[in-house]
């Protein structure tokens, strides 16, 4: 079994992605992600550094609309699905402070 990515690296990536994993999950994901990255070795070895990247298949870029005001969601609509709100705003637990 290849180990392109270790359980320790998986745990670090999970932290970056705001996910929490058990040790068993980190082990399992390390082996599964390694096999996908192994498969990707066919493109790793290609020497194509001069080639343009394709981001939009039809090559459309920087499309802007006319600067005309149109109605968006009302404050009420935007807040209608909020888990918690206060004074017309999204309410969240403390941003600063000690984690428990």
């Amino acid at each position: 079994m290849s180990s392109r990515i270790s359980p320790k690296e998986v745990a670090h990536v999970a932290m970056l992605a705001r996910l929490s994993l058990t040790d068993e999950e980190a082990e399992l994901y390390a082996s599964q992600l390694s096999s996908v990255l192994d498969h990707a070795s066919d493109i790793e070895s290609l020497d194509i550094h001069d080639l343009e990247v394709t981001a939009h298949p039809l090559g459309l870029t920087n499309r802007t609309r006319m600067d005309i005001v149109v109605a968006g969601l009302s404050q009420r609509e935007a807040l209608s699905q909020a888990p918690d709100e206060a004074q017309g705003m999204f309410s969240v637990p403390p941003v600063l402070g000690e984690p428990s």
Partner: peptide
Amino acid sequence: EGSNIEETNVLTRTKGFGAEVKRRIMLGTY
């Protein structure tokens, strides 16, 4: 809900996403 916003983010995402979605988020983040 966690004790602060970051803990809330982590608890919410860990509970809300299934295994394949987590796998792809991690592959992509990596």
